[in-house]
Design a protein around this nucleic acid. Structure first.
Length: 455
DNA sequence: CACTTCAATAC
RNA sequence: UUUGUAUUGAAGUG
C-alpha cells in the first residue's frame, strides 16, 4: 500500500504510524515511503527526537554540531535535507574506540549530525513496519521490552507444567554481530519485511557503504552496520528476524498448533514426536530451551550451518554452550537461570514439578560492587567539602539504585545482602549510614549524611 | 491528573 | 564517549 504523506501535524503523523503498524501486521507491504520520510513534520520530529541526545554536541567527520541545524532557518534546513537525500551520499563515519566491560575494545562509528537526522527520519517511518513483523520473543532494542521481560519469559516457559520440561539451554553467542551483518542479505530482508520502495533501500545501502575514517584514512565498510548509527539497532533486529521465526516455527509457532487449549496442543505435538523448542533473543544474545541434550546438540549443529550459510555469521565456539539447567546454571543477560524444585511451603510440602528460577550473576555483581567501592573510598579525600561529598554520594546512589533495579526481578536477596554488607563495611569507618526502604524488597541506598540533607 | 525537560543506571 | 531500549530519580508546565 501507499503511505499517506500529506500530513501536516505531529498527531497526524502518529495516527499514520499506528495505521502503518496495523497494516504491516496484516502482512501488507509499503511503497511511497520516501515521501513520508521527507515530509516536513517527519523531519521536524526527527530533529526534536535526537537534539538532546548525549552526542548532539559530538560531531561526525565534518565537525558540525547539532546547534548549527537548530539555528538554521526551518525552510532552508528542510530543503537542505531533501537535497541531500536526493542522490544520497552519506559522509563516512568517524571511528572511535571505547572499552567494553570485558576489557576488549568496541569500534564505534559516529555519523555526521546531518546523516543522523536523516537516519532518524527513516527510522520513524520504517520502525512500525518492522515492529509489526518482529518475533514476539525478541526483546533487544524494542519499545516496551526490557531484559526482565526476556528473563521472565524463560522462567515461565520452564515452569509451565511439562511431562519433560524444556530445561536444556542452548546459549548462543554471535561473533562481532553488528560488524558482520551482510549488506546484500540485509537489503533482501528489508524488502521481505515490507519495505517495497527501492529509493529507501538505496538510501540504506548508501548508509551501510559509507565507509569510515580512521587516522585520516578512508576505509570501506564491506560488511556490518555501524555501532553508533541511529537505525543500526533496528537493522540488527530485522537481520535476525528470519532466524527468530525459523526457530519459532519448529514448535511454539508451528502450523501444527491448532487447538486454543495449550495443554491439548502440547500433548498432540508430543505424540507426533515434536520436541519443545523456545527461542528468546535479546539483540545478539539468544537462548533456546529444549528438553534433551541430544535434541539440543542436534539443533545446534544445524544452527551453526544456518548462521554460516544463511546469515554469513559465525557462532563463537567457546561461548555457545549447551547447559542442562537442572544441574548447572545458564547465563543470560547478567542472570543465572536454573531449573529446580520450588521451595517447600505449608501448602506444598513435597513439590515435584520443576520451575525456572533466575538469580543475579554474582560475578558481575561483585565486579560492580568493586567499582562502587573504589568510588566510595574517594570520599576520604574530599576533606570537609560537603558539596563534593554530596556529589559523590549522589553518584554512588545512582549506581546502587541502577544495579538494584536491574537485578530486582530475579531472586536477589543473596545479592542484596552481599552489596549491603560490602558497602556497609566501607561506610562504617567513614561514619556514613545505610538507608533501607521499608517495602518488601530490601534495597540498598547510601543516604546523605544528616548535615548534608539540605543540598 | 496529564504532559514536558533534565540527570543517572542496566543491557 | 556513539546508538537503541528499559528503569529510577529530580524539576517544571497546565
Amino acid at each position: 500500500m501507499f503511505i499517506k504523506h500529506n500530513f501536516t501535524s505531529e498527531s497526524e503523523l502518529k495516527m499514520i504510524l499506528d495505521n502503518i503498524y496495523s497494516q504491516s501486521q496484516k502482512g501488507k507491504s509499503f511503497n511511497g515511503i520516501l515521501e513520508a520520510v521527507l515530509n516536513e513534520v517527519t523531519i521536524i520530529t526527527a530533529i526534536h527526537n535526537i537534539k538532546s541526545n548525549k552526542g548532539a554536541n559530538t560531531p561526525g567527520i565534518d565537525g558540525e554540531k547539532m546547534d548549527k541545524y537548530l539555528q538554521m532557518d526551518k525552510d532552508r534546513l528542510i530543503s537542505l535535507i531533501r537535497k541531500k537525500v536526493n542522490n544520497y551520499k552519506p559522509k563516512p563515519v568517524r571511528r572511535h574506540y571505547i572499552k567494553k566491560s570485558n576489557g576488549k575494545m568496541r569500534p564505534l562509528g559516529i555519523p555526521s549530525i546531518l546523516d543522523r537526522i536523516i537516519q532518524e527520519c527513516l527510522r520513524i517511518i520504517i520502525e512500525p513496519i518492522a515492529e509489526a513483523k518482529f518475533y514476539p520473543k525478541s526483546y533487544g532494542f524494542r519499545p516496551y521490552r526490557a531484559t526482565k521481560h526476556a528473563i521472565k519469559d524463560i522462567t515461565t516457559i520452564i515452569s509451565s507444567r511439562w511431562k519433560q520440561p524444556p530445561a536444556v539451554a542452548i546459549e548462543g553467542d554471535i561473533k562481532g554481530y553488528f560488524d558482520s551483518i551482510c549488506h546484500r542479505k540485509l537489503l533482501k530482508k528489508l524488502w521481505k519485511i515490507g519495505i517495497h520502495d527501492k529509493r529507501i533501500l538505496a538510501i540504506i545501502k548508501a548508509m551501510l557503504k559509507a565507509g569510515y575514517m580512521e587516522n585520516d584514512t578512508l576505509y570501506d565498510t564491506e560488511t556490518g552496520t555501524v555501532q553508533g548509527g541511529i537505525i543500526s539497532p533496528l537493522l540488527a533486529n530485522i537481520y535476525l528476524n528470519d532466524f527468530d521465526w525459523m526457530v519459532g516455527r519448529m514448535y511454539h509457532y508451528t502450523k501444527r498448533r491448532k487447538s486454543s487449549n495449550i495443554a491439548t496442543d502440547r500433548t498432540r505435538l508430543r505424540n507426533e514426536g515434536i520436541i519443545p523448542k523456545f527461542l528468546v533473543r535479546f539483540a545478539d544474545d539468544w537462548i533456546i530451551l529444549t528438553s534433551t541434550i541430544k535434541e539440543a546438540t542436534r539443533l545446534l549443529k544445524y544452527l551453526k550451518k544456518y548462521f554460516k550459510h544463511r546469515l554469513k555469521l559465525e557462532l563463537s565456539e567457546e561461548k555457545t554452550l549447551i547447559t542442562d539447567m537442572t544441574e548447572n546454571m545458564a547465563k543470560f543477560l547478567g542472570f543465572m537461570i536454573k531449573a529446580e524444585l520450588p521451595r517447600k511451603t505449608p501448602e506444598n510440602p513435597n513439590p515435584s514439578t520443576i520451575v525456572g528460577k533466575s538469580y543475579p550473576d554474582m560475578e558481575r555483581v561483585k565486579t560492580k560492587v568493586r567499582q562502587i567501592s573504589s568510588e566510595l573510598k574517594q570520599i576520604r579525600f574530599t576533606g570537609k567539602n560537603s558539596y563534593l561529598q554530596a556529589t559523590i554520594i549522589e553518584n554512588i546512589n545512582a549506581k546502587i539504585i541502577g544495579l538494584s533495579e536491574y537485578i530486582k526481578p530475579s531472586i536477589c536477596s543473596a545479592a542484596f545482602a552481599y552489596i549491603d554488607n560490602a558497602i556497609n563495611k566501607l561506610l562504617h569507618p567513614l561514619k556514613y549510614s545505610l538507608a533501607r526502604n521499608t517495602g518488601n524488597i530490601k534495597f540498598l541506598y547510601v543516604s546523605l549524611p544528616t548535615d548534608n540533607k539540605g543540598i
